[in-house]
Design a protein around this nucleic acid. Structure first.
Lengths: 136, 136
DNA sequence: TATAATTCCTCTAGCTACTAGAGCTTCAAG
DNA sequence: CTTGAAGCTCTAGTAGCTAGAGGAATTATA
């Protein structure tokens, strides 16, 4: 049996976050000690690790809800898991693409070496979208 | 003079968002009509365009506050603008790097072609960080 | 000009995924 | 048995909006 603090240390999930996940229904409410403190089992630990890892990979809480549900049913086909992951991969890729465009634009405007704001490319570009080279 | 709706159409910023920016002090409270409706001038329009464009480039509201302040003082040196933009560029680059690592991991795990959850690489990887190839 | 349709007003609450703090209770080590 | 760390619940705050209620003003049509 682990206290919430031990669980936190083992998974790297902060204590208030663990309570938050419980409130959101991602993890089951664990048993309590006589004095009403949470006591977790190994199952609780591995479930929280799963969540932590999924969050690290950028899955939303809703995605994780689906993935957890699936992981409880090993006999089911795993198409759903794949489509959640594939969708997420797409999201990640489009975010990368968008950030790359920003990066290009920011690199370009920060090259300015004017001395004052009146002639500064950063300020000027922000004021006038027409000066941009790419869409965003 | 523009109504809030016209301003919204010209800048692409939604009406509640314009009011929100006013509340946050990013734009000045404009004059009002006899019936208490907002009436904007061309200055209001260009200030909002500046904000919109900066948001598109991913600057935070706080950053924009600084950039706007600077843009009001054309005679000042523009070092501050550059450091805000350069810092932001760094943020963008580190986000790109992080997303690339995720992308690699997600690509790898979605390659799985098992038929059911018990053998599915997606689920398995989420459950066990040790199966990952890169840190995240 | 009368009425109808559209736009605008303020105010409150909700979204994601947490995080921080107040004020109090329980646990574990010495 | 005491004391300090760790736990409890509850509320509110973070960014950057977005949505809805309920009502007033403006604009377009008949």
């Amino acid at each position: 049996m682990f206290s919430i603090g031990q669980l936190s240390k083992r998974t790297g999930v902060k204590i208030p976050t663990i309570r938050y996940y419980e409130q959101m229904g991602l993890i089951d409410a664990p048993e309590r000690s006589e004095g009403n403190q949470r006591r977790y089992t190994k199952e609780g630990l591995s479930r929280l690790s799963f969540i932590r890892h999924s969050r690290d990979l950028g899955f939303s809480v809703e995605d994780i809800r689906g993935l957890l549900e699936l992981s409880q049913h090993p006999e089911k086909p795993c198409l759903d898991a794949h489509s959640i992951a594939a969708q997420h991969l797409q999201d990640v890729q489009s975010r990368i693409a968008k950030l790359r465009r920003l990066e290009r634009e920011l690199k370009r405007i920060t090259k300015c070496d004017a001395g004052n704001v009146a002639a500064c490319a950063v300020i000027e570009t922000l004021a006038d979208h027409g000066l941009c080279e790419t869409e965003h």
